[in-house]
Amino acid sequence: MTDAIPEFKKAEVTQVGLTGSALASGLGATTRREIAIILAVAVIVIGGLEAVLWWYAVPQYILPRPSLIAAALVKEFPLILPHLGYTMVSLLSGFAIGAGTGMILAAVVTQYPFVEKVITPYILVLVTTPMLALVPLLILRFGFGYTPRIIAVALAVGPMVMINAATGFRRTDSAKIALARSYGASTLQIFWKIRAPMALPMILVGLMIGAIFGLLTTVGAEMVGGGFGLGNRLTTYSSMIDMPEFFAVILLLSVIGILIYVIFFLIGKKWASWET
């Protein structure tokens, strides 16, 4: 009388969450063999680059050898570390403000379709305009401290989070809401127990893209003005043609980017995997 449990069901369901993205496939390496191959390829790529740059004696100011970049990273690390901290402060504060505002706006606005229609064009403008362009203006108004950076990051993150979260909140399933209402659920309960979990996969997509945009904006803003942050290190090192150090900073920035991706991937896997 008990049905057999099918191993694969609903393969046709469209996946909107992070865990369903093509990018996620690289994080699926599990077997020892796969990991070994991935590592081997990495060694070959980096080693090959090292060999080619060395063989053709490519000058440092064009592209330093990986070994020189690694050495520079180790040597300069104590000097770079505080700047990593400054960058994280701008990124995290701007992200928190932008993401929080974006999510709240999305949750509220999707309840009022007309309001949503009116404000969506402006949000689109904010999404598509590089907030970096505002930084010189913000610096004029707020000086060279954290403030203009945090504002620019929040402006870059907020609309991105909002537009994705709104897509999530709009995915209302009237049968599920009816289910909750049939048990006498309040509007607030329906929000927390139905709308929010249903929106979560899209919210996570928005947070991840928002965080990456936030990182771009942070570094860009640091390059435009102010004497601190990894972006500022980039301009300093490149002006002194310290290319290994320059690339060491780039390396750090990619690590931050990858970490952002991995963190949201894992959160999605834990909390939004029902979608896939």
């Binding site: 049968a175 599920k176 289910l179 049939s182 939004a272 029902w274």
Partner: peptide, 14 residues
């Protein structure tokens, strides 16, 4: 006093 069973099972997938 009234229970409801929907057209599809309508379980919450999460």
């Amino acid at each position: 006093e009234i229970g409801l069973v929907f057209q599809e099972a309508n379980l919450l997938p999460w």
